[in-house]
Computed example of a mutant assay.
Amino acid sequence: MRDLPQMQTIYARARALMAANGNPTQWGTQFPRESVIIDDIANQRTMLLVDTIGGHERILAQFALCPGKDPTYASIDGAWLDNDTYVTIHRIASSGLVRHAARDCIKWALKHYGNVRADTHPNNKAMQHVLESSGFARCGLIQLVDRPTDTTRIAYQRHEW
């Protein structure tokens, strides 16, 4: 919880960056809400990539690592690579302090869990590039179930066999 203010700052930066790069609606001006971030922390889904400089720890990137079946992924216009157990990366954001921090988070998840899924907005070209350059396959389109509009997302998966 002590990292919550810094995490909120990183998410605010990510929202501004997405909007400036042609993706103003994926996270809008409010997502993820504080209650979502707190819920991720309380349920031990929050993952932080940190380093220490001069005795001061700083967050380089953050994401939610969600084990178990994601209900949003039950229906896909396309096909997943397999139906094996997987984890999902959600709400990934970089602080901008170092290059490739999001890629480092993804690499860590693959190393520790092997079968990883993620999704992103069709306008989020940066995240599409990160996922595809990290070896993820574009599996199809999914529809978010928790909002009334702007629901289409591109679904990705990588399974380390």
Rank of each mutant, 00 (worst) to 15 (best):
M1H: 12
R2G: 07
P5F: 01
P5Q: 10
Q8S: 04
T9D: 15
I10F: 03
Y11D: 11
R13Y: 14
M18I: 07
N23L: 02
N23R: 02
P24D: 06
T25Y: 09
W27V: 03
T29W: 12
P32A: 03
S35Y: 00
V36R: 04
I41H: 12
Q44T: 12
R45V: 13
R45E: 14
T46G: 02
M47A: 13
L48Q: 01
L49D: 09
I53T: 15
F63N: 12
A64K: 09
A64V: 06
C66T: 13
P67Y: 04
D70Y: 02
Y73P: 10
A74V: 05
L81S: 08
D84G: 03
Y86E: 00
V87C: 01
I89V: 15
R91S: 02
I92S: 05
G96R: 06
V98F: 08
R99Y: 06
A101R: 05
R103V: 09
K111I: 12
K111N: 09
H112R: 00
Y113W: 15
G114D: 00
V116R: 06
A118D: 03
T120F: 02
T120L: 08
P122H: 01
P122A: 01
N123T: 13
M127T: 09
H129L: 13
E132D: 07
S134G: 08
I142H: 11
Q143L: 15
D146G: 14
T149Q: 01
T149R: 04
R153F: 07
A155M: 11
